[in-house]
């Protein structure tokens, strides 16, 4: 029996779909016993969504009423729904939009950006924006998540293989630090540093004072960024033992006894510590509650 797979994109960048293609020649092997029944970048199927889908991979967060309807429609047809990538699983970078009012953001983009000659906000047959950026599990039941912005191709291939074999896939329960080759120091850093400063080779970036999200982030990418001496930005979301990526890192920062980065007040937890998870953070949950007053 062939397995019927569908993919779908919401508010995202298509990067997760490209990561799927990055499984390379492996993809052709994977798709041998599979029927791709709905996937706008690859096959020509139009709406409505075909029935009896076995696995649906959904990229992107829920930003418009159209996204919401499509997610629900897909859930109806699919037996196993996967939130594919950080946007879908945790809200993604789009979640940073929850730090301001959606309407204000829209007006900003259509009225205040530099080149706008004729100021109007589109309204005919285009989807309506929701007040909040939501992750997929806020609107439908999600059976599994594949984290990462985008997910690592090897991990995608491995998860799909496991699913096709009828087993339940599993994510790593470790943190990025467990995969990172850099050497940790016992001394806390003397000062906090920004990433335009040049780090020393071979030494843990957090020990050097860079805000590396490694300790709070789920392993699985092989510490791609820290291998290049760039701090992990936390794209794979919280690891198993971390209840909220942003706050846990904030806490770690407090433990380092350093308040401020030279020149730059750490006023935006969202952009630095919860870049991919703000829309699903405890703080944003509280805020959403407050907004409903």
């Amino acid at each position: 029996m062939t397995v019927r797979i569908a993919t779908m994109g919401m508010a995202g960048c298509s990067g997760c779909h490209i990561a799927l293609l990055d499984t390379g020649v492996e993809l052709l092997n994977l798709l041998k016993d599979v029927e791709l029944v709905y996937s706008y970048p690859i096959v020509d199927a139009k709406n409505p969504i075909p029935p009896n889908i076995d696995v649906a991979l959904i990229e992107g967060s829920i930003r418009t009423n159209h996204d919401k309807e499509m997610a629900k429609a897909m859930r109806k047809q699919a037996k196993f729904v996967i939130a594919f990538g950080a946007c879908s699983a945790h809200g993604g970078v789009n979640g940073l939009a929850n730090t301001f009012d959606a309407q204000e953001g829209v007006e900003y983009v259509y009225h205040k950006t530099l080149l706008m000659a004729q100021k109007q906000v589109p309204s005919e047959h285009v989807p309506q924006i929701l007040p909040e950026n939501l992750r997929l599990s806020d609107v439908v039941k999600v059976d599994f998540i594949i984290p990462g912005c985008p997910p690592h191709p090897d991990e995608i291939a491995q998860i799909i293989t496991t699913l096709l074999a009828g087993e339940t896939p599993k994510l790593s329960s470790k943190s990025i630090c467990d995969e990172c080759p850099l050497e940790r120091l016992t001394e806390p850093p003397k000062q906090l540093r920004r990433i335009h400063e040049i780090p020393e080779q071979g030494i843990c970036l957090l020990s050097q004072g860079f805000l590396c999200m490694g300790p709070a982030t789920r392993a699985g990418c092989g510490a791609e960024c820290t291998r290049r001496l760039m701090p992990c930005t936390g794209c794979r979301g919280p690891s198993e033992t971390v209840w909220d990526q942003g706050i846990v890192m904030l806490d770690a920062l407090a433990a380092m006894e350093k308040d401020e980065i030279t020149n730059f007040k750490l006023s935006r937890l969202a952009g630095t510590f919860a870049r991919y998870t703000y829309a699903s953070s405890k703080l944003d949950n509280l805020r959403k509650g407050l907004k409903k007053k």
Binding site: T99, I247, L250, L253, A254, L269
Partner: peptide
Amino acid sequence: KLAKELEAIG
């Protein structure tokens, strides 16, 4: 630090 974040969300 937490107080600052709380302030930001109201």
